[in-house]
């Protein structure tokens, strides 16, 4: 009995010593890695300095009525961002994330203020790629597809069509990636598996597709209905569109609004085998787990919603269409 107690005690002692050694090592590591001995090198000092700047910027944003002060505020936010960046190596990842979140909130409120004070700026919101303005670009002219320094072949696909029904069967084809772009009021039926699907600039279209083994990437679509299955899906610049999805991972939207989601509902002869081949034969429920990259908050994003059951189209059987 005593022996056991003793053993336990030594064990505990050892454990205690180990913890001490570890914490001492952690401390020396932190100290040796200090980029400079200024007061910003510890987390708490960082946080207090960060919070001071944040408060001062927030106050400026709140009290500003003069558009000429906007560049100052913007510069202050950049400084703060730089400050976080400089300290990112030392900070716990939670602090980095929450600081970055604060900065993005500040940017957002500055943007709101800017649009209030300078109403003209509102137009830039409607442009298809508003976020590009944040990045300093050497070439301000948007480059059309064909002007690359090196000629690129086109991928297979449907392009520049109006009021048509377009059908593609991938069964037995050599097609790996497929592009659907610049369609107006078309109906597209894709049968069989494909590796990657790109959808761009679609208006008032209905797109029905069998399983995509890899990912779907979508930009600039409006007033469309999509019935899609894939491993990943990324939706950019979408407006007023309905998505019937089956996805293995979480769908994401970015710069989109008025988009609604429901579960996959496509039928055609042999779809079950295709879904099994693509490992999409099981409903994952992920169609409802949408991440909105323009709404990084805990509350529901206003940009997307679940499509009410009574408004859903029901099963779509390609054999019965038209």
């Amino acid at each position: 009995m005593e022996d056991e107690d003793n053993e336990e005690q030594t064990l505990q002692k050892k454990h205690q010593l180990m913890l001490e050694r570890l914490s001492a090592r952690h401390q020396t590591r932190l100290e040796t890695r200090k980029p400079d001995p200024s007061d910003s090198s510890t987390t708490s000092a960082f946080l207090s300095r960060f919070n001071d700047s944040k408060k001062s910027i927030a106050a400026k944003i709140e009290s500003s009525t003069d558009p000429s002060r906007l560049p100052d505020i913007s510069a202050a936010i950049s400084d703060l961002e730089k400050f976080v960046a400089e300290n990112s190596y030392l900070l716990p990842s939670y602090e980095i994330r929450s600081s970055l979140k604060t900065i993005s909130d500040l940017k957002q409120s500055l943007e709101n203020l800017t649009s209030q004070l300078i109403p003209k700026k509102k137009f830039s919101f409607k442009k298809s790629k508003p976020t590009k303005t944040q990045i300093p670009q050497p070439d301000t002219v948007s480059v059309p597809e064909k002007t690359t320094s090196y000629p690129i072949r086109d991928s297979p696909g449907f392009r520049h069509k109006q009021n048509q029904v377009l059908v593609q069967n991938f069964k037995g084809s050599e097609i790996g990636e497929f592009t659907i772009s610049d369609l107006d009021s078309c109906e597209v039926k894709l049968i069989g598996c494909v590796n990657a699907l790109f959808l761009n600039r679609l208006k008032n279209c209905k797109i029905y597709a069998g399983p995509v083994v890899g990912s779907i990437l979508m930009e600039e679509v409006e007033d469309c209905v999509f019935v899609l299955a894939s491993h990943q899906i990324r939706i950019h610049f979408a407006k007023r569109s309905d998505f019937y999805l089956r996805v293995r991972s979480r769908p994401i939207i970015e710069d989109s609004d008025g988009v609604r989601f429901a579960n996959y509902c496509l039928k055609y002869e042999g779809i079950e085998e295709d879904l099994a081949v693509a490992r999409l034969d099981e409903e994952t429920g992920n169609w409802a787990n949408v991440d909105d990259f323009k709404w990084l908050r805990a509350v529901q994003s206003p940009n997307w919603s679940i499509l009410p059951a009574e408004e859903r189209v029901g099963d779509v059987d390609l054999a019965n269409l038209r």
Binding site: A85, D154, E177, A196
Partner: peptide, 24 residues
């Protein structure tokens, strides 16, 4: 991205070789 630049020894730039449209 730039918040992660400090102390980087190796940079891996990944390209989707099937995404012909966004190569620019």
């Amino acid at each position: 991205w730039r918040n992660y630049f400090e102390q980087t020894d190796g940079l891996v730039w990944v390209v989707d070789s099937s995404d012909l449209r966004r190569l620019d």
